[in-house]
Lab assay of single mutants.
Amino acid sequence: MPSETPQAEVGPTGCPHRSGPHSAKGSLEKGSPEDKEAKEPLWIRPDAPSRCTWQLGRPASESPHHHTAPAKSPKILPDILKKIGDTPMVRINKIGKKFGLKCELLAKCEFFNAGGSVKDRISLRMIEDAERDGTLKPGDTIIEPTSGNTGIGLALAAAVRGYRCIIVMPEKMSSEKVDVLRALGAEIVRTPTNARFDSPESHVGVAWRLKNEIPNSHILDQYRNASNPLAHYDTTADEILQQCDGKLDMLVASVGTGGTITGIARKLKEKCPGCRIIGVDPEGSILAEPEELNQTEQTTYEVEGIGYDFIPTVLDRTVVDKWFKSNDEEAFTFARMLIAQEGLLCGGSAGSTVAVAVKAAQELQEGQRCVVILPDSVRNYMTKFLSDRWMLQKGFLKEEDLTEKKPWWWHLRVQELGLSAPLTVLPTITCGHTIEILREKGFDQAPVVDEAGVILGMVTLGNMLSSLLAGKVQPSDQVGKVIYKQFKQIRLTDTLGRLSHILEMDHFALVV
């Protein structure tokens, strides 16, 4: 994948999101292997301009796509893939009243899908469409860049269908997702969380590099694949309309690839034109409109599966009536509230959605109805927002919020430890010299600072030695090549209790 991002070429006709291997024109390309080798690009942008032909009021008969309808489940399912879809609609009884809503608040519980998330729908649909058009064949390999849930859905379907599955996901995604993927037989590649989507090191860039190296491999490409919004247009939206008897006044959905909100909203605009569509985008993402909503100094966020630093091709923002931004604290607070007060075992993005819903639905009156999409299960986040310690460490809970008995030293300040200034190293000294210094002084790690004293990161003896043994660096290389740029900081005025929580999850903390 090139470091400079080429513009994806656009073909003359058809839909841009065809499933299957992508040609340089962004659509299915038939021909000899030699032709494909000559024409197939190194990668295709996940934010390529959409060429979708959908228009409100256009006859369904003019759609270029294969459409399906929700099917009634048999008493005995032939395999677990038949437990994807037909998820329950559940009334939220307490939270709406707590925040003064007059309307009825309903939750579409997508964590009841077989793999635990709304992404099971698009995973199965992308595979079925690729099999139907002859792209996927027995023994082929599926590769997908994902925040985890699409990966789980694909790995689940691949396990049943017999495909090899490789999932490329950023490091910030939970260990629970990784464990589930491994249990399903998927191979996992992790990428830096802070890598831009168009960087060769991003999950998108690495996935395309693997595709170019592995024979008979395919990126189904949830960011561009029409099967993504079509899955929701054909099934999720129809289920909502049936469950609500066609009567709903507002739908609120958090947005990642945009397939969920695009597919549902398009069908609702056709069948229930008075329904307002509300999009939820986390602070630090750029999906919301108008652009002024996205202006923030924050560039990272903890909530998973929603928000991006690019506009995915499948996201149709014209069908969203209003956007709201959400933050991590309210997302996790509301997710825990949904679990504790409503018994809905949902993930953090569901918290984002409901946090926005109780604001947006203030305009609705008694007798009206708001539906929220709860995308995934708490299963993926047992060591994250479900953990009091994690919430404390991230600053989303305060010590006084917890009532468990603490040891005698818990409320003492870090400054009472009488710490001395640490050994520091410059980023320009060599790895070999740094190892000598650390061994001589008896230290395992040291902060790396520039000549102005600005902290650049941390270097550890173990990481340097393993990097040297693996051949990633040489003793003569500058130590700046092996620094940890993500590390926890703590102030002298913070409590030892807070430091204790940090050290339970990290090997060190830097006192500043």
Rank of each mutant, 00 (worst) to 15 (best):
P2M: 15
E4F: 04
E4L: 09
T5P: 08
V10G: 13
V10M: 14
V10I: 13
T13D: 08
P16H: 06
R18H: 15
R18C: 04
G20M: 09
G20D: 10
H22N: 14
S23K: 09
A24R: 10
K25A: 03
L28A: 10
K30L: 03
G31R: 10
P33R: 11
P33N: 10
E34L: 01
K36V: 06
K39S: 03
P41S: 14
W43G: 10
P46V: 06
P46A: 07
P49Y: 03
S50L: 07
R51L: 03
R51Y: 07
C52R: 02
T53H: 04
R58P: 11
P59F: 01
A60S: 10
A60G: 04
S61Q: 13
E62R: 04
S63I: 15
H65N: 04
A71R: 10
K72C: 08
K75H: 04
K75W: 12
L81H: 09
K82N: 14
K82S: 09
K83Y: 10
D86G: 13
P88W: 03
P88N: 03
R91G: 15
N93K: 09
K94C: 14
I95T: 07
G96L: 05
K97Y: 13
K97W: 03
L101C: 02
L101F: 04
K102W: 05
C103P: 00
L105I: 14
L105W: 00
L105H: 00
E110V: 01
F111R: 03
F112N: 05
G115Q: 07
G115N: 07
S117M: 04
S117F: 04
V118G: 06
V118T: 08
D120A: 13
R121E: 03
I122H: 00
S123Y: 06
S123F: 05
L124Y: 11
I127T: 09
A130D: 07
G134Q: 06
P138Y: 15
P138N: 13
P138F: 12
T141H: 07
T141A: 13
I142S: 00
I143G: 03
E144T: 04
E144H: 03
P145H: 05
G148K: 02
G148Q: 01
N149M: 00
N149P: 05
G151S: 03
L154K: 00
L156K: 00
A159P: 04
A159W: 02
V160K: 04
V160Y: 07
R161G: 14
G162M: 06
R164H: 14
C165T: 04
M169L: 14
P170Y: 02
E171I: 12
S175F: 12
R182T: 09
R182V: 04
L184W: 01
L184Y: 08
G185H: 05
E187F: 02
I188N: 04
A195T: 10
R196Y: 11
F197V: 03
S199I: 04
S199E: 05
P200D: 09
H203C: 05
A207H: 01
A207N: 00
R209S: 11
R209I: 09
L210F: 07
E213T: 12
P215Q: 08
N216F: 06
N216M: 01
N216G: 04
H218W: 10
H218S: 02
H218C: 14
Q222A: 00
Y223F: 07
R224Q: 09
R224K: 13
N225T: 10
S227C: 12
L230C: 10
A231F: 07
D234L: 15
E239G: 10
E239S: 06
I240F: 04
D245E: 12
K247E: 08
K247F: 01
D249Y: 03
V252H: 07
V252L: 14
S254Q: 06
S254R: 06
G256S: 02
G256N: 02
T260C: 11
I261E: 02
T262Q: 01
G263N: 00
G263S: 00
G263A: 00
R266I: 11
K267F: 11
K267P: 01
L268K: 03
L268A: 04
K271S: 15
C272T: 10
P273F: 03
C275N: 02
R276V: 13
